[in-house]
Write a protein that binds this DNA or RNA. Sequence first.
DNA 1: CTGTTAGCGCGTTCAC
DNA 2: GTGAACGCGCTAACAG
Lengths: 331, 331
Amino acid sequence: MKLTLKGIARECGVSPATVSRVLRNDESFRVSPEIREKVLETVRRTGYQPDFAARSLRSSKSRMVCICGLKSMPHPLGVYSSMIDGTVSELQSHGYEALLDFSSNSVNESAYGMKFDGIISLDSDPSEGVQSYIRRNDIPCVVLSGSSEKKFDSVSADDPAALATAMDFLYSRGHRRVAYAGTMFDHQQDHICVEERFECFNKYLLNKNMDRLDVSRKTLYDAVEFLHGAIVREKVSAVLAFDHFSGLEVYRAAMLLGFKIPEDFSLISFNDVYPVARLVPAFTVMAVPAEEMGKLAARRLVLRMKGEISGAAEEFRLTESLIVRDSVKSI
Amino acid sequence: MKLTLKGIARECGVSPATVSRVLRNDESFRVSPEIREKVLETVRRTGYQPDFAARSLRSSKSRMVCICGLKSMPHPLGVYSSMIDGTVSELQSHGYEALLDFSSNSVNESAYGMKFDGIISLDSDPSEGVQSYIRRNDIPCVVLSGSSEKKFDSVSADDPAALATAMDFLYSRGHRRVAYAGTMFDHQQDHICVEERFECFNKYLLNKNMDRLDVSRKTLYDAVEFLHGAIVREKVSAVLAFDHFSGLEVYRAAMLLGFKIPEDFSLISFNDVYPVARLVPAFTVMAVPAEEMGKLAARRLVLRMKGEISGAAEEFRLTESLIVRDSVKSI
DNA sequence: CTGTTAGCGCGTTCAC
DNA sequence: GTGAACGCGCTAACAG
């Protein structure tokens, strides 16, 4: 015999509506403490759980959010892994579930007509499918790890500041000739951070009157060629890598070419992600506060879903931190 | 105005029941081809999608499966990432959605009374919470990456065979003194593969009359100490690592201690997971067919959910493959 | 503060 | 082969 709300109501000698109110913590209805306690106790004792489908059907709220915009990756999730962890756990602590949309560019059509209450988009510019879903259902969306021209709330890392921090660190250690190793992946090209980091890098050079080297590129096609050019031709003393993937490729190139880090050149990369801390030398990195970003995005989304905020979209940028390890030396 | 089944029915001049039947491909009702086509066409044209909640409420089927048993990890998902990818995509191609249960040991209580149609457990021994959920709802479960003493269907990699393959390879390259570097993580201790791989390793030694070395352990606490003992004291010529994590720790220890791979010792590990192929030397590994395992588990689950099979649990073991790269030399 | 009533959008009987 | 009616379990709206 299935446990239903009606059953609990009968058991307690109250009406179904009352049980429903207690269970939903309905603010607008005051319930006498005795009844509330009795209901709660019965629910605990019986292990009753409201039926998801029925609740969702009636209220046209699913308490589910869809995490989409995850680009198909040939590689592990890296920082996204922590972001998603953060988002999911925060969401759950507010009573929401998250569905990770592994499909690519629209809110998964095969999601079977599910009504999501909100969207977390890992893509700054949600696909047309996603946007239309958002409009049709009139649900909030927050962009995680990207900005969105004020269309949606967004939370991202403060890359301009981080770039400056990293470069200041290098500068303070005496580095004047530093090369930039860009992203390795085409599918990342439209992520703001690839543009932003490179641009800020160049601005920094300008500011400090440092040479802009020919090997520095927004995209890293061939790490070996890059590193050879950087060290031999450009006499670079340090390399700044766009992310841990690029960082590792440069590291690999160094081993292949017989250069030692940090003796022959210093290396600093973005993202404190496995395995950069377990390499020799361990990488000095700018760490994106991934989990915190995930949590913030979730909190923001919850606020919107609950209608507790409704104004214009806001942009949040979280500070990255410099983690000094062994891949940079003073010169 | 929301598109409902009733609306489609009106549009087509038929009854809701008819529309429902053609949409569900209801075998037991024959529908005239003209009507069927008309309905299908209207659905396509309007973009109608059955409401998830209503359908689920009515049929007490959700077309969702829960992937649970993911141990909380201090590290990236490694092979699990591909397994999950495989499972999810296969599930979706059969019209099911998957919810990754990030919470730990019971089917997420906050999952809000959701009725899952099936469970994929990454844990050989699903927690009491999960098992009780399975019993209460009478749904199928398949264990992925583990066996389950015939309680549930299971799919895993054929570690005994893989171990032999790896050791044969080493043996054929002249290695007679090989040490085993076990798992690094306590939370893995109860995974069969940690027992199985170590056991098979020892059996192999016995079989081939090779020395069983004192440094070989099921658990790797300190890679540096391990490697020092293995090379200096035991004169080991090769190390077999339980997984890519252990492999990387051994690699790290080698750099720290100044040993070169494969000049000073050869290394072979399990799991072809980032970044082992991007290290210098690139690891020779036994690759678990993770994605394929995920797909197989999904297919099996779908069969059970549809009631197309119902017999006793079966155990599937998939063959791992040896990927030869640069970390093993002949002696 | 609490109970009653009326559906939410489907799938499943039954009749026809 | 098709339609009408009912109800899944819950919550919103309205009484009281």
